[in-house]
Write a protein that binds this DNA or RNA. Structure first.
Length: 102
DNA sequence: TGTTTGACGGACA
DNA sequence: CTGTCCGCCAAAC
């Protein structure tokens, strides 16, 4: 039986929870870790469904270019800088903060 | 069942 | 560096 959407969501949530503080993951990276390569857009859709008061570190997810594409980019940037991730010209250095998934 | 949408990714000018 | 274009694909419509 194909994986229901909820099953995928749960895996994504778990992965999200594993991103170390002060580090960053990309949508494509998460999709891959969740076992669904090329579904980066689905990750975004799932994140958009998170409750605004979630404890999950949704702010540690940006696109492959180190750029924030989240509608609430201001809040995301604020949260990132609060944990030591500095944006330079609206960009995050994946070289420096990129999460090297195990 | 066909079409549109989108918190993406990568190639290219 | 920026803007554009195209491939991808589940969800929403």
């Amino acid at each position: 039986m194909a994986e229901s959407r909820q099953f995928t969501e749960e895996r994504v949530w778990q992965i999200l929870h594993q991103i170390p503080k002060g580090q960053i993951a990309t949508y494509g990276q998460i999709a891959k870790l969740a076992g669904i390569p090329r579904h980066s857009r689905l990750i975004g859709q799932i994140l958009s469904g998170l409750p605004p008061d979630t404890k999950l570190p949704w702010h540690r997810v940006i696109n492959s270019q180190g750029r924030i594409t989240n509608p609430a980019k201001d809040r995301q940037q604020l949260r990132l800088e609060e944990e030591g991730v500095t944006l330079i010209n609206g960009r995050v250095s994946l070289k420096v903060y990129g999460w090297d998934a195990s």
